[in-house]
């Protein structure tokens, strides 16, 4: 299915696409959700918890869009506050302690821009996740399932393996925002989407991501099982591979992966 970058942007934002919790339901067994950052609050834009992948205990973290308006409001349209990133980091450090691999599902328009987010250090929260994730002594796999918006996505995206779904996008800014800044015209978002090189195919071509996960005809929403079973197969194989490395080797590879971009 050949879609233009702008068509992919629109598809990636469709509310009928499978969300983080859909992937969790299909891929893992016995998911137990854990709440709160232990510092300020609970951010429902990010879901985190423990589950079994096959027979291995893992930590799962997902940015969660609402599947209806009510849920979208509760989840702030998957735009996390600092608490969300700090909860994610708390669970990642816990995963390190118990030697559990970490799987992150990325799906956000971006970190939330608001007064509270600034007062509580949105920049600091994201920065800390980047620096900590590089050094975490346990395997990390991140998958951009629909929308990977800027630093708010990267804060769950420093990993040993990074994948994107076939029609997912990952970018420095929304095409609308990009068009406003660079073309001084937000209606040029379609042009921006193409200039920005934000598709999974572009990012794979540029060596930013490790692979592309195929979607069924029409998109991931047409066959949840098809998409999730491929994700499961991929991360199961990766975890085997990563657990076979020494921690030093794994961390050196992770460092070099970003160092060479």
């Amino acid at each position: 299915m050949d879609l233009t970058p702008w068509e992919k942007v629109k598809l990636a934002r469709m509310p009928i696409r499978p969300t983080g919790l859909d992937y969790i339901d299909y891929i893992f067994d016995g998911f137990m959700e854990l709440h709160g950052d232990r510092l300020y609050g609970e951010d429902r834009a990010i879901v985190g918890g423990l589950a079994f992948l096959n027979d291995i205990p893992v930590t799962v973290i997902a940015q969660q869009k609402g599947r209806n308006t009510k849920e979208n409001i509760a989840r702030n349209f998957s735009m996390p506050h600092p608490e969300g990133y700090r909860k994610a980091l708390r669970l990642m450090k816990q995963a390190e302690k118990f030697a559990r691999p970490i799987i992150c599902f990325i799906d956000t328009p971006g970190a939330f821009c608001g007064i509270g987010a600034e007062e509580r250090g949105q920049g600091e929260a994201i920065a800390t996740n980047l620096a900590e994730m590089v050094m975490l002594k346990t395997p990390i796999i991140s998958i951009v399932i629909s929308e990977g918006g800027s630093g708010g996505a990267l804060a769950l995206g420093v990993a040993d393996k990074v994948y994107m779904l076939e029609h997912a996008i990952y970018s420095i800014l929304s095409p609308e925002g990009f068009a406003t800044i660079l073309y001084k015209d937000s209606s040029k978002a379609e042009l921006a989407a193409s200039d920005m090189k934000l598709t999974a195919q572009d990012l794979y071509h540029h060596g930013i991501i490790d692979g592309i996960i195929p979607e069924p005809p029409g998109g991931a929403h047409n066959d949840h099982e098809f998409v999730t079973s491929q994700v499961k197969e991929l991360i199961s194989a990766d975890i085997d591979e990563l657990l076979g490395l020494s921690v030093d080797d794994m961390l050196e590879r992770r460092y070099q992966k970003y160092r060479n971009i």
Binding site: A127, L130, A131, V134, S150, G151, L154, G157, V158, Y170, S171, I172, M196, K197, L198, D202, L203, H206, I208, Y255, Y258, R259, I261
Partner: peptide
Amino acid sequence: GIFSLMQMAKVSAAV
């Protein structure tokens, strides 16, 4: 674009 975003990870890693 995305290369700029990835510099955040690269520099944070070196830090």
